[in-house]
Design a protein around this nucleic acid. Structure first.
Lengths: 103, 103
DNA sequence: CTTGTTAATCGTTAATCGACGATATACAAT
DNA sequence: ATTGTATATCGTCGATTAACGATTAACAAG
């Protein structure tokens, strides 16, 4: 059986992975990683999707705490949440930590 | 705009992440990581889900190439596909490689 | 060949996802 | 106050997901 602690970890990691499980959101994250910050409009310009759809993807990333968004006048400046990303990578590391082969 | 190469990477990573985006599948992977190999039945025993549901999760993991499954008589022995897992981690590394702050 | 066991697949249902256009909100500039 | 711009949210629709019980397929043992 899995411990309660494990289950919490699994749920947290699953939420992050679900947010990462769409090419458009990965493209958004890459853009943010490269440019540091980004006005929403710049992201929309780079993506082959409508403004509404991009906004929805941004919301999903924000809900998963992978990015932060600050209102700046009529614009909104997004950037990566490096803390969550670090945690995500650590969780994956722990999950697969001691890899052994079998078959 | 994103390069065609980028898009392929995003799609491949998205597929892996989608497979990782469920707590039950993470639990299965942890079990495999700890025990090396695993008969399907042992996994079912550890999980609080029906055999059919576990089998479905195993199929998703297998489709994403995160695990391999070999038939062994009436049983099926699963184990992690360390290659895909390594690639997954590398892709995440590349995606977030040069993290800078902005806000 | 029959039986028992293991695992995969089928068929269904409710829930969630992804996409979009339309609309609402928030603020700067005039 | 009005206008224009930027972003978020709403409502809808088709597609996909997750879950399950029931059934089927594959094989070992007798």
């Amino acid at each position: 059986m899995k411990s309660a602690q494990d289950i919490k970890e699994f749920e947290a990691l699953a939420i992050s992975c679900k947010a990462l499980s769409h090419p458009a959101r990965l493209a958004i994250l890459q853009t943010l990683a490269r440019r540091g910050s980004c006005i929403c409009g710049e992201i929309v310009a780079v993506m082959p999707l409508s403004q509404a759809t991009v906004s929805q993807h941004l919301k999903i990333l924000k809900n998963a705490n992978l990015i932060t968004g600050e209102i700046d006048g009529p614009r909104c400046c997004y950037c990566l949440n490096t803390r969550t990303i670090r945690e995500l990578r650590e969780r994956i590391g722990v999950l697969f930590g001691s890899l052994e082969n079998c078959c």
